[in-house]
Design a protein around this nucleic acid. Structure first.
Length: 774
DNA sequence: TCGATCACGATTTTT
DNA sequence: TCGTGATCGA
């Protein structure tokens, strides 16, 4: 143990070895937070705490798994396995399952993901005949979610003047009613949504002191990672569990709080010392990850925020390169520049491999164009995020069968499969089923079991179809007891006819669906194998489902260490590090997001998000922005992000146009072919920039003017172009700047040969090409 | 009830 | 641009 402790610096050591009372560890970016947490757990084990008495809560499955592995390497697999370590959601769903009877839920309750709850909300709103343009589904969902995260139950919501008034003010007075029905339907379906996992845990601990008492005694030490991202529900669970013994250690960095949209409350960490009087505060301020330039640049940025715990993050690594800022004319060009930079940096005699690079963006939508650019340059990449494997249609459909087998009252799953594959049970029948079920306050499945008793108004043909469907499901349920999970899965896909219908489809998508299906079955048997290895006596379908619903894409990553460039949102990058980080799309209304515009708090969160992005970098950080970008199907003009001005200029490096030209000179041929294909997609809008980009110009918001669509003012175009001559420098919306080499032809057929800085030589018909003189 | 076609609308981040 | 939702005809 001593040997391990000697690897820690002074403040890390203090944080690790203090276990007498509550403690708060403020861990700056890259300060060895995970190391402190893992060593602290190892230390506690060494002190004699049995592993099962330690509760360690993380934010993502990935973080939990990695920490577990690191602890295992210190104290051994046997001990590490018995720790209670996982995400809030997974740990408390586990507890809820074993205590479900207290709350009137089945222990095999379903977990509704946000798509499920959205769909349920939609159907409730339809039944209430609410206009979905007034009651925007996303707004309704987040309203209810926020209420739950603040532990406001349906009753409390109805009684809250404030909330009711706010709803009336926003023309949605019936949110309380939606919430009420939603909750009732979830209960009826034996389902909890993500927020319920925390809310119901709180209800459990509030209403059943003996249960709380049991877990209080059970968990003798509690650790929480990423505490700045906890919401009120999470905070209160932790507080309740630690109230008596006060052995709690939370780790976090207020500068990295980026989840307030999900109810995370930065006050939890800011107020920690008031909630736990006598708590010790440790600050980890030495950054081991990044160069001084990066740390200093990030510091200068984050200091622009008002709300924060004071700390001085510093680095004793080398000074390193300044942060480079690169501008492009369009999002297309941004893609090529990024791809080019990666290729260049990899070739530059350095030791970099593709996996040393990460491209980070604000929104998933930005990934497409970057993906295309990397592909054209044959740069291998992997994209995180987007829709996960388990959210794909074909996978969700099959999982829905499993869900119904385990919990037939699961309304959302039942609705998905009742007519998949099509068996002649259409929307009308389903609506009748729903109506009958809610009139009698039972689940759809209950109605299905005895349609006559609930006066389901269907003709005999439909009744037969429903009956056949019910019998099919019942046969599966019977087999669930006899067969292993993977055997059952095979039976389901075969007997429902899913296999048959999927394998007829020879289209590209059809084949990919088949592959996904096989992947799923393989995943199930691997899961079963793993559980048996871990000593489980038998593996039930319910076991698989309970894990799957909390799994995300990043969790089933197979080729983790493949040599590929990583692409992900900034949110997804939290907690990770890369030698080289490229943050793209640094434009107003994108980063910071348009949504954040009118609130200081929101802007500060965006700034923290940017801080997170920069501090992922170990050696080099590159920031790019485009001056025009495709949004909503048309190109729009963008100005550079205000955040660029928030970084002290001394840490920034803005290359001149000329050096950019050198960079790409040798690669022109490739750019040419790339440019050719993007030429096909050329847009109509023409952007004109007032002045060449200089460092100074980049420091302020550039003044951009827009000229009318050239197609609708064709006459003007030739007039505009008549003074174009060889030798002129021109600018093109997509290809950026270049020099005219040659002009040939007359009038409508006039052609210009232009050598673009970043896209090589191109011939353009002046009739279409909207060129402007620089 | 189902499939195809068309129009429209919306776009932040995720356990 | 893309995907979803509504509408229509069979």
């Amino acid at each position: 143990m001593e040997e391990y402790l000697s690897q820690l610096n002074e403040s890390q050591l203090q944080a690790v070895t203090y276990s007498e009372g509550p403690s708060l560890v403020i861990a700056g970016a890259g300060s060895g937070k995970t190391r402190v947490l893992t060593y602290k757990i190892a230390y506690l084990l060494h002190q004699g705490f049995p592993p099962q008495s330690i509760l360690a809560l993380t934010f993502t499955n990935k973080a939990a798994r990695e920490m577990k592995e690191r602890i295992a390497s210190i104290v051994g697999e046997q001990q590490a396995r018995r720790l209670w370590m996982g995400t809030f959601h997974s740990i408390f769903s586990r507890i809820l399952r074993s205590e479900a009877s207290y709350l009137g839920y089945p222990s095999a309750f379903t977990i509704y993901d946000s798509a499920d709850s959205k769909s349920l909300l939609k159907s409730i709103m339809k039944e209430m005949q609410l206009d979905d343009k007034v009651y925007r589904i996303g707004t309704v969902q987040s309203r209810i979610s926020n209420a739950k995260n603040s532990l406001i139950t349906v009753k409390a919501y109805e009684q809250s003047k404030e909330l009711i008034e706010a709803d009336q003010h926003s023309k949605m007075p019936l949110i309380a009613e939606i919430y009420k029905r939603y909750q009732a339907r979830c209960k009826q379906a034996g389902a909890m949504d993500f927020d319920d996992l925390l809310l119901q845990t709180n209800i459990l601990f509030r209403d059943f002191p003996e249960v709380l008492e049991k877990y209080r005694r059970f968990f003798r030490y509690i650790l929480v990672d990423e505490y700045q991202d906890t919401n009120f529900a999470q905070h209160l669970i932790v507080q309740r569990l630690s109230e008596l013994h006060q052995r709690i250690c939370v780790v976090g960095d207020d500068a990295q709080s980026i989840y307030s949209f999900r109810g995370a409350n930065i006050d939890n960490i800011l107020q920690f010392k008031n909630v736990y009087p006598g708590c010790k505060i440790f600050k980890l301020e030495r950054n081991y990850r990044s160069t001084q330039s990066i740390v200093n640049a990030a510091n200068s940025l984050i200091h622009k925020n008002k709300e924060q715990i004071h700390k001085t993050v510093y680095s004793e690594n080398s000074v390193g390169e300044k942060i480079r800022v690169i501008s492009s004319y369009s999002d297309y060009e941004e893609g090529y520049v990024v791809a080019g930079k990666i290729a260049e940096m990899r070739m530059a005699g350095t030791h970099y491999t593709y996996s040393d690079f990460a491209i980070l963006y604000r929104t998933n939508a930005q990934s497409r164009i970057l993906e295309e650019a990397l592909r054209k340059r044959n740069i291998p990449y992997k994209i995180y995020g987007g829709l996960s494997f388990y959210q794909r249609k074909e996978i969700k459909d099959i999982i829905s069968y499993f869900r119904v087998i385990v919990n037939p009252h699961d309304e959302e799953a039942l609705k998905r499969i009742i007519n998949y594959p099509t068996r002649g049970i259409g929307e009308t029948t389903v609506n009748k089923l729903i109506a009958a079920a809610s009139d009698n306050e039972v689940s759809l499945w209950t109605v299905l079991q005895d349609p006559a008793a609930y006066k389901l108004p269907v003709n005999s043909g439909t009744a037969n179809k429903l009956n056949a469907f019910r019998e099919l499901l019942e046969s599966f349920m019977l087999k669930n007891d006899q067969l292993s999970v993977e055997e059952l899965a095979a039976v389901v896909v075969k007997e429902t006819g899913i296999v048959g219908s999927l394998f007829q489809d020879r289209s590209v998508e059809g084949i990919s669906k088949q592959e996904n299906l096989q992947e799923l079955i393989k995943g199930i048997s691997e899961f079963a194998e793993l559980k048996l290895e871990e000593g489980a006596e038998s593996v039930k379908l319910a076991d698989f489902l309970s894990e799957v619903s909390l799994l995300t894409d990043q969790d089933n990553d197979k080729n983790e260490n493949a040599n590929k460039v990583t692409m992900m949102t900034v949110h997804a990058a939290k907690g990770l590090e890369f030698k080289n980080v490229i943050v793209v799309g640094l434009e107003e209304d994108l980063f910071p997001s348009l949504m954040a515009k009118d609130s200081l708090r929101a802007i500060e969160e965006e700034r923290r998000l940017f801080y997170v992005a920069i501090t992922r970098a170990e050696e080099n950080c590159l920031l790019t922005y485009a001056k025009s970008r495709f949004r909503n199907g048309q190109s729009s003009i963008c100005s550079p992000s205000r955040f660029l001005k928030d970084i002290d200029a001394e840490f920034l490096d803005i290359p001149s146009v000329a050096s950019a030209e050198d960079t790409f000179q040798s690669k022109r041929a490739e750019y040419q072919s790339a440019a050719l294909s993007s030429f096909r997609n050329q847009t109509k809008a023409e952007d004109v920039f007032s002045s060449p980009v200089t460092a100074a110009a980049q420091q302020r918001v550039s003044h951009l003017t827009k000229i009318n669509d050239a197609a609708s003012s064709g006459g003007n175009v030739s007039a505009l172009n008549s003074n174009l001559q060889p030798g002129c420098r021109v600018r093109h919306e997509r290809f950026g700047e270049g020099e005219i080499l040659q002009i040939e032809g007359t009038d409508a057929n006039q052609k210009a040969t232009v050598l673009f800085d970043n896209f090589g030589q191109k011939q353009l018909l002046l009739k279409f090409a909207k060129l402007t003189l620089v």
